[in-house]
């Protein structure tokens, strides 16, 4: 299927943006900035989906990723030292092996993309992608769609169970000490009695 030149140009720009911002995620100093780079990468892929006429999926990607990355940024600030990127930061292990593995994955998958013969069946001209997706979701594949909904509900319950303050075997943080404000320092302060910790739920 041939796309007009402008689509190709846009695709090239967006592909570069997606790859560069995806790569910057792992080498920026600030973890909050890393989550925004990831958001840029996702939005570039979402626009490419819209270029491929999957409008619903592209727009759903925008909404979902915008919210998800905000949550991620909040967790970054909660958990990470150095959320603002004031100090240089490179927290990696097995670095060379990881680079080699990433390159190997790219070479193998890229080789599959370039060398194998895929059928050339572009979209029919009269197809309405959104209507066809809607008919599929509430038609033939309704069981799959509903199962996904049930699994999401199960996830919510599991998340609350995992992150709730008080578990079946007593308080979740029993016996643990808060970390010091500096390495080896005194504990930063024990949680107060009666603190129910409802703010830790992520939904």
């Amino acid at each position: 299927m041939d796309y007009p030149l402008i689509v190709d140009i846009f695709f090239l720009l967006l592909a570069t943006l997606a790859v560069v911002s995806g790569w910057r995620v792992f080498c920026t100093d600030s973890m909050v900035r890393a989550s925004f780079f990831l958001l840029v990468s996702f939005i570039a892929v979402g626009v490419i989906m819209i270029l491929l006429t999957a409008e619903y999926l592209g727009v759903a990607m925008f909404f979902m990723m915008a919210v998800e990355m905000m949550v991620m940024a909040i967790f970054m600030v909660m958990f990470m030292m150095n959320p603002a990127g004031l100090n240089p930061m490179m927290m990696v292990h097995q670095h060379k092996f990881s680079i080699a593995a990433g390159v190997a994955i790219f070479v193998v998958l890229g080789g599959v993309a370039l060398l194998s013969e895929f059928p050339d069946n572009p979209l029919p001209a009269d197809l309405d992608p959104v209507a066809s997706l809607g008919n599929e979701l509430l038609g033939d594949s309704m069981l799959i769609f509903e199962s996904a909904g049930i699994v999401l509900l199960t996830t919510m319950i599991g998340v609350v169970v995992l992150s709730s303050h008080r578990g079946r075997y007593g308080a979740a943080e029993e016996g643990s000490m808060p970390p010091g404000l500096e390495p080896g320092g005194d504990p930063a302060g024990m949680p107060e009695e009666g603190d129910e910790g409802g703010h830790h739920h992520c939904h």
């Binding site: 592909a15 997606a18 790859v19 995806g22 790569w23 995620v25 792992f26 973890m31 890393a34 989550s35 990831l38 990468s41 892929v45 490419i48 991620m72 967790f75 970054m76 958990f79 990470m80 927290m91 990696v92 292990h93 097995q94 670095h95 092996f97 990881s98 680079i99 593995a101 990433g102 390159v103 994955i105 790219f106 998958l109 890229g110 599959v112 993309a113 370039l114």
Partner: peptide
């Protein structure tokens, strides 16, 4: 598919190399 392979490769690198859990999830 090349772009998808590049994203998967970068993600694989990140998941293997990052020490902090949240970066690993990224």
């Amino acid at each position: 598919l090349l772009l998808a392979a590049a994203l998967i490769g970068i993600g694989f690198y990140g998941a293997l190399s990052q020490q902090s859990f949240v970066m690993l999830m990224m």
